[in-house]
Write a protein that binds this DNA or RNA. Structure first.
Length: 210
DNA sequence: ACATTAAGTGATT
DNA sequence: AATCACTTAATGT
């Protein structure tokens, strides 16, 4: 665990901060599909991803989900930052996209470190910035791209975060992530297959056009 | 062999 | 692009 942490974050922080993080951070391992954080839940810890990936979802009043973006190794969750601005309730849901190892930091510490370590402050601001860009990208995607393009992009993203062009999922799951119906996904996937961009089998899709 | 779950299809809005 | 109402195919027990 220590080595994985050093590998991904070692170059970011000074030794003193690294020591503090290792002293106070709680190592956690979660399996694919595990719920890490839900809407309305109080935030007490902020995660630093060591391996794996997490998907961040929003939910509408009817319980329909929409995927916002993925978090990968080296990322943290921007929503946890806002809890330092007074609000301590999560606005999003976080689900493990794959088996994931995390280092959980108590939110109290991140406030203290903001003042104490320049490198930490920089890390938080950078993270916030990249999350913001990710979010803008998905807004663009939802607003301007047609379903077939969104679908292909989603598959490519999924292949990317899992480091595997073979995506293990069902049409229904994809439909949930994109907030559309399974029938539509099935039809568009068939079209993509005919175009030679993907190959399909039950429960798995191979992304050929990366 | 049977039940369950995933995926395909045509028609309608 | 969504929904309905099936059908067909793959898989688990």
């Amino acid at each position: 665990m220590t080595t994985k942490f050093q590998q991904n974050y070692g170059y970011l922080f000074e030794q003193e901060l690294l020591d503090e993080i290792e002293a106070v951070g709680i190592y956690k391992k979660v399996g694919q599909g595990d719920l890490l954080m839900d809407i309305g839940q109080p935030i007490t810890m902020m995660p630093l991803l060591l391996t794996g990936a997490i998907k961040i979802l929003r939910e509408d009043d009817k319980g329909d989900e929409l995927l916002l973006y993925f978090l990968e190794t080296g990322d943290s969750c921007a929503m946890t930052f806002s809890c330092c601005m007074g609000k301590r309730i999560s606005e999003i849901r976080a689900v493990a996209e794959s088996d994931t190892e995390l280092l959980m930091i108590p939110v109290g510490k991140m406030e203290v470190w903001m003042g104490k370590y320049k490198s930490w402050q920089q890390f938080i601001l950078d993270s916030y910035h990249t999350r913001m860009l990710e979010l803008l990208d998905t807004v663009d995607t939802i607003a301007f791209m047609k379903m077939d393009q969104r679908l292909l992009k989603h598959l490519q993203d999924k292949a990317m975060v899992n480091h595997d062009e073979l995506v293990q999922t069902t049409h229904q799951e994809i439909a949930d992530d994109l907030n559309t119906s399974r029938v539509v996904v099935s039809r568009l996937l068939k079209k993509l297959e005919n175009e030679g961009k993907i190959a399909m089998n039950r429960n798995q899709i191979k992304v050929l056009a990366l």
